[in-house]
Design a protein around this nucleic acid. Sequence first.
DNA 1: GTCTAATTGCAAATGATTTGCAATTGTGAT
DNA 2: ATCACAATTGCAAATCATTTGCAATTAGAC
Lengths: 144, 144
Amino acid sequence: MKKAPIDAQELLHTKGLKATPIRLRLIETLHESKTPLTIEELQKILKKKGGNTTTLYRALSAFVENHIAQATPITKGVYSYELIWHKHHHHHIVCGDCGIIESIPFCIKNIGVSATKKSRLFKTIQSHSLSFFGTCKKCTKKVR
Amino acid sequence: MKKAPIDAQELLHTKGLKATPIRLRLIETLHESKTPLTIEELQKILKKKGGNTTTLYRALSAFVENHIAQATPITKGVYSYELIWHKHHHHHIVCGDCGIIESIPFCIKNIGVSATKKSRLFKTIQSHSLSFFGTCKKCTKKVR
DNA sequence: GTCTAATTGCAAATGATTTGCAATTGTGAT
DNA sequence: ATCACAATTGCAAATCATTTGCAATTAGAC
């Protein structure tokens, strides 16, 4: 089941970016994905349609700079990308086996605020990132 | 103020690793540090004493494999290392300006458990990682 | 349609991390 | 204390993801 369509073109124009086919495709891919995607996964999806690695990297960093998408560090060398512009702040569960990433819809900002009160070095917090690591249902079923 | 000394030698032997000077120094450095350290910081500290980059990497991955230390992804391309074997589970606050990392001593495992109940893809969680990003007191004082 | 700056795609550069291998060292056995 | 051997080290070279330079292409404003 697809999500509601986005006007990716307008989104890009709002940010002063040109609406090129690659960027439109990328935004649609991220929007339609049920889970945040890693660069590797995006490569796989976009390569089929003639995507170029350099362009993917450049598009993603343009998105991050312009607050269209956000990159979350997941594990050593792996970051997940997802659209940010319409989202409710949330966190992730990552499967240690297949690497699939699911978003979880609550936020723990209040915990951060109380953490700073006890901190020796910090007084304010701007943001936070939380990931849980487990095994997804599909991988749980696999025979080892 | 230093923490209580560790028997780093015994720790290594327990794990079947040889107690070489570099590894002993590394464990002591990590143990005495008030904050988790990045590879870059460890390099700086160990270089003074003739540390080799390759060896540092190899020692750290031996530590991680043998559950002596853990690596936490902080931001794109940056991981913090800290001893795990004696620690109470905890989380981090990272300064976006100077990168210093402080540990915060509470845990949110219970939140993870309730998160899985609502998850579409996951049933169990093995671990989690949480970082807050802010500005440390020292950097707050700096004039921009 | 024309013009211009932004964007693309390739090849080459970079930079962190890893690997091969010969030399060295820690450790358990003697 | 010495020996023998596997583990570890350090260097140089290899690898891998990511970034950059630059000429060619393209989106968007006129």
